[in-house]
Simulated assay, not measured.
Amino acid sequence: MSLLPDGMHVTTSMVATYFEVAETVIRAVVFDHREELEGNGYRVLTGPELSYFKQLSGIRTHTASLALFSRRTVLNVAMLLRDSNVARQVRAYLLDTEYTVRNRPVDNSVHNLPADLLAALAAGLDNRIDQRVTHILGTTVVPLLNALIESAGEQRKGLLSAREDIHRAQRKLAQHEQKLHRLERARARRPLTGSRPLAGSTASTDAMTGREFAQHVAELLRRDGCTDVEIDSGGDRDATLTARTADGRGLVARCGDRTPHRAVGDGEMREFVGTKALHRADVAVYVATRPLSREAHDVAAQAGVTAVHRGLLEAWSAGTVLQALR
């Protein structure tokens, strides 16, 4: 039976070829008797251990793992295979050998040799054993230990890197928590709305939810004499309000999406112009806590929409009446 270049192992395909069975049969034997086979030398190489073994033995394979059978494991497989003529022949050979050895007369002539010759023979045998052990240690055990040490070092680096990532994430979470606390404090300090002029601080409106902002605009409309003020739709992003001005004109207002660091675009303004036409409103007010793009301003001017940008909103909240509501 041919061996790998290390002279000690064979692969799954080599075992299957030797016993003249399919590789799936060998894999099934390993699946059913893995613990027994591992006890006799079967192992699967992966990662750095596989790379080092390929470098050491000169074997070429592009798989992520490599199953290795020792000679003892191959004999173990022969004992477990049922439907293989070769396996049956191996079993018969082992049984015949055991019978022959067991019934062979013991040769005691060696005991009649001089003591110094017996000592020399024993020393020579010990030397051969020592050389074999040294060869095995140098070609398999030591390289494998080196590979394991190298792998442990790489794993330690990975753990250290993961720990740094966790620390960075913890710092970011702490920063976000501080920001949330600041927003909560700002909301707690925001005065309640009522019949008196509403708070004009942009910080207070920035801290509002979409629904709260819509209710804030509704209170501003009521304060300036509007009646039948209703919030038709609303959510976290925007809301549409309808009302009647003090002189009876129909009004529609839009509380725009208050996403920070993004100007209101002309597309959003055109969509609101369509809402104005749908409601057949005489007065249209677009309220935003963020700036409007030049294109959005142009669309609003052409369609007769009162654009309440951030600065105008602060003045309106502080008590100034919108020109469109007078």
Score class of each variant (00 low, 15 high):
residue 6 D to A: 08
residue 12 T to R: 13
residue 14 M to W: 03
residue 16 A to I: 09
residue 20 E to W: 05
residue 20 E to S: 14
residue 24 T to G: 01
residue 24 T to E: 04
residue 25 V to W: 01
residue 38 E to L: 05
residue 45 L to Y: 05
residue 45 L to I: 03
residue 50 L to Q: 11
residue 56 L to I: 11
residue 58 G to I: 06
residue 58 G to F: 10
residue 59 I to E: 04
residue 71 R to F: 05
residue 72 R to Q: 08
residue 72 R to L: 11
residue 72 R to M: 01
residue 78 A to V: 02
residue 80 L to H: 07
residue 81 L to N: 03
residue 88 R to M: 10
residue 88 R to L: 14
residue 89 Q to W: 13
residue 90 V to G: 01
residue 92 A to C: 02
residue 93 Y to N: 10
residue 96 D to V: 03
residue 98 E to K: 08
residue 100 T to R: 14
residue 104 R to E: 12
residue 106 V to F: 04
residue 108 N to F: 14
residue 110 V to A: 12
residue 111 H to Y: 14
residue 113 L to K: 07
residue 116 D to P: 01
residue 119 A to L: 15
residue 120 A to W: 04
residue 123 A to R: 05
residue 140 T to R: 04
residue 140 T to N: 02
residue 155 Q to G: 12
residue 160 L to N: 15
residue 160 L to Q: 15
residue 162 A to N: 13
residue 175 Q to M: 12
residue 176 H to S: 08
residue 176 H to C: 06
residue 178 Q to R: 11
residue 179 K to F: 12
residue 184 E to Q: 14
residue 191 P to R: 09
residue 203 A to E: 08
residue 217 V to C: 11
residue 218 A to D: 09
residue 218 A to N: 02
residue 227 T to P: 03
residue 231 I to G: 04
residue 238 D to V: 07
residue 238 D to N: 10
residue 240 T to A: 04
residue 255 C to M: 06
residue 256 G to K: 01
residue 258 R to I: 00
residue 259 T to S: 10
residue 262 R to G: 04
residue 271 E to K: 05
residue 272 F to C: 07
residue 275 T to A: 07
residue 285 V to P: 03
residue 291 P to H: 09
residue 295 E to C: 06
residue 296 A to S: 12
residue 298 D to P: 00
residue 300 A to H: 08
residue 301 A to R: 15
residue 317 S to G: 09
residue 321 V to M: 08
residue 321 V to G: 03
